[in-house]
Design a protein around this nucleic acid. Structure first.
Lengths: 228, 228
DNA sequence: CGTCAGCTTGACTCATCTCAACTAGGGTGG
DNA sequence: CCACCCTAGTTGAGATGAGTCAAGCTGACG
């Protein structure tokens, strides 16, 4: 994808981009800059001045906070079509880095604000996108509050499957580019517990584990575990 | 507070209301309706059509989701000045009810949208408020991801103290209108563990427990526990 | 005065954490 | 080509923190 290529972008139909009429893409293209990040590269750091907004176009991004004692909490994973960079204070509230190779569309904050204000319906759209952003952490809260490791892992897999499904991927064969440690930091579990729980689910024929991917064999069983 | 009384409202200076110029209050008053709710009264239910937005003006509100198996997750507590009712789909994503006596300002969704669109700077303000709403669940996620009960409870107390402080209340003597069960459902703990943990903190002279309130005696100690 | 909700505390259980050993695959350098 | 190292993952054994079950306390209320 180069400038002038929004129409052919694979995430054209999802997220913020879907809100733009074809006639408005020109504007967007004029201010969007293509960025890419190699494995483990930092996209932005917690506390940095939030001078840009991003839309993920390929790969998986890990959003996290570091605590004073060195522990890491993963706030969420961002997939293609997801928006990043809404901040209250002008500073990022969390850090973001690439899991594997990541591509993103980046716009400067002032440029983005100008785009949003240039068309009367866009502030409204931005508000909708923000509200969607709001829904993700709420689901996460419910998952974290759940009692058992099995329930948490099941909810993580179902949630990931549905998000991938909405992007046009399979809801059954899930790429899992993040490590067991990442999943653990996301679910509030240790990496050993994540590994054991996945193994247990595999032994019960609910899933099948492959390197860096998982296949859902018995979705009903997983849904039953999420109790939601 | 009656119509025409926004200027004298005690939350005039915080949240959404602070974004309105004095000259704009007339508009707001014209469409805002005063509502009050007795202890345990439902303000809205998860899944209901979200036909109104609320600003809490007094008391404490409990936001929660019920799971299929009957467990309850408290998403958060809303204090005076907090906004409620941002939804993606037109349906509330969680339920809300009153803890003790609650007063709120309510506006119909279309009326509220009309107000927001009537002045050019208001969509922007609404976006800011939404972004603030976004920050609350993120803090909650970090607290839930913490390992020990003591850390969770300490983070809960510090967070509550700061929010009350911003409202002009004491950061030391905290009213605690919610029950131990509420706190447990918020932190992902049982009510017994919450009680034991508070007792332990009191025994260490970090806090002092009174019926329906807590006094922070050693804030530094609590902050150290939150590791953040 | 009895009842009930909210809270506290104790004893015991058990799920998860911790520590540790081991396997597999990839990359590097001699 | 092989020896070595490193990362990611798996599995086991034992420790422990939080859950469960139960008893009892207190204050409010009818």
């Amino acid at each position: 994808m180069r400038h002038g290529q929004c129409l052919g972008c694979r995430i054209r139909g999802v997220g913020v981009c879907a809100a733009l009429a074809p006639s408005e893409l020109g504007l967007r293209e004029a201010l969007a800059e293509k960025a890419s990040f190699h494995d483990r590269k930092t996209i932005f750091l917690q506390g940095d001045a939030a001078d840009a907004v991003h839309v993920v176009t390929g790969g998986t991004v890990r959003l996290y906070r570091l605590l004073a004692d060195g522990r890491r909490h993963i706030i969420g994973f961002r997939l293609p079509g997801d928006f990043m960079g809404l901040v209250l204070s002008g500073h990022y509230a969390f850090s973001a880095d690439a899991i594997g190779f990541v591509t993103a569309c980046r716009a400067s904050r002032p440029g983005f604000a100008a785009l949003v204000n240039s068309k009367p319906h866009l502030p409204r759209c931005l508000h909708d996108v923000t509200t969607h952003e709001l829904a993700l952490p709420q689901d996460h809260i419910v998952v974290l509050g759940r009692r058992t490791a099995k329930e948490k892992v099941a909810a993580f897999l179902i949630g990931l499957a549905d998000r991938l499904g909405r992007l046009g991927h399979s809801r059954v064969a899930l790429p899992l580019p993040m490590t067991r440690l990442d999943i653990g930091d996301y679910l509030g579990l240790t990496l050993e517990t994540v590994s054991r729980t996945l193994s247990k689910l595999a032994r019960e024929n609910a899933i099948s584990i492959m390197p860096y991917s998982v296949t859902i064999l018995d979705r009903a069983r997983l849904e039953e575990l999420t109790a939601n």
